[in-house]
């Protein structure tokens, strides 16, 4: 087991109108797994990812990665851990407006003070791979939402993280870009054994995973393992969504 989440919970707000975003949640993720986390909006997906990735501290419980209890670490060490081992694709992109595309993408490498040649190499490789070479010198506010998401993905992947956290990575992408990104995620998952935790409410996106956990109101509702056939897996996911939400609770992707 690479990631062990033990009985974590998180509340927001004050006593009276507190929101129990995550309630006594446990989860185990194997090395090299491509885990999907599904649930309707407000189910607690983002909160869960944030806690596993140490961006937020849980109120209770533990998050153990490679035998290390991250909740016990100091903020500073958490940041270091995050920087060295994790990559993030945030739902809100979290790109830096002051920097241009290139600088945004290479930021994780620059932060680690990698050498210049490696930075250029990796950058060119990522841009080519994601088919966005022409965006290199653009400013962030000159990009469409979809382009921003791709750039955010490029940044997350550029330093080959051991664990990749992706929060609705295809939410703003057209089907072609989404397929490219998902294929690449699958690729690094298989080749580099990168563990991926991806939150999504989209069945097509989820069908790339090796396992999908369904959460609702902050608790695990059920989970399905990919039988090895994506179409079949997709069917299973759709069915599960129907079971949970009674039909159109979830967006069913049109591009399957």
């Amino acid at each position: 087991m690479q990631i062990v989440v033990k009985n974590i919970s998180k509340d927001f707000g004050k006593k009276k109108n507190a929101v129990h975003a995550i309630k006594d949640f446990s989860l185990k993720v194997d090395h090299g797994e491509f885990l999907g986390i599904m649930g309707p909006s407000g189910a607690g997906k983002t909160t869960l990812l944030n806690m596993i990735s140490t961006n937020e501290r849980p109120d209770h419980g533990q998050v153990i990665i490679d035998g290390l209890d991250l909740t016990k670490l100091h903020d500073r060490d958490q940041a270091k851990y995050r920087r060295n081992k994790m990559g993030f694709i945030y739902q809100s992109f979290e790109l830096l407006d002051s920097l241009n595309v290139k600088e945004n993408v290479i930021l994780p490498l620059a932060l680690n003070r990698s050498n210049k040649k490696l930075i250029e190499e990796r950058f060119n490789y990522m841009m080519k791979l994601l088919n966005v070479e022409n965006l290199s010198d653009r400013a962030i506010d000159e990009l469409s939402l979809g382009q921003r998401q791709i750039i955010a993905a490029a940044r997350a992947l550029i330093n080959n993280p051991e664990i990749l956290f992706a929060d609705e990575p295809t939410g703003s992408l057209d089907s072609k870009s989404a397929t490219i990104l998902l294929n690449y995620m699958q690729l690094i998952n298989q080749r580099e054994k990168t563990t991926i935790l991806m939150a999504t409410h989209d069945a097509f996106t989820a069908s790339y995973c090796s396992r999908v956990v369904f959460i609702k109101d902050g608790v695990v509702f059920s989970e399905i393992v990919n039988p090895g056939d994506r179409d079949k897996f997709f069917e299973q996911i759709i069915n599960m969504q129907r079971t949970i939400g009674g039909g159109n609770y979830f967006n069913v992707s049109e591009n399957n």
């Binding site: 995050r82 920087r83 060295n84 945030y90 979290e94 407006d97 932060l111």
Partner: peptide
């Protein structure tokens, strides 16, 4: 607004508070 958001973003991608 966007300037303080940027600092928050830095923190999210693993820049230490210090």
């Amino acid at each position: 607004d966007y300037q303080s958001r940027q600092l928050r973003t830095l923190q999210k991608i693993g820049v230490e508070e210090s």
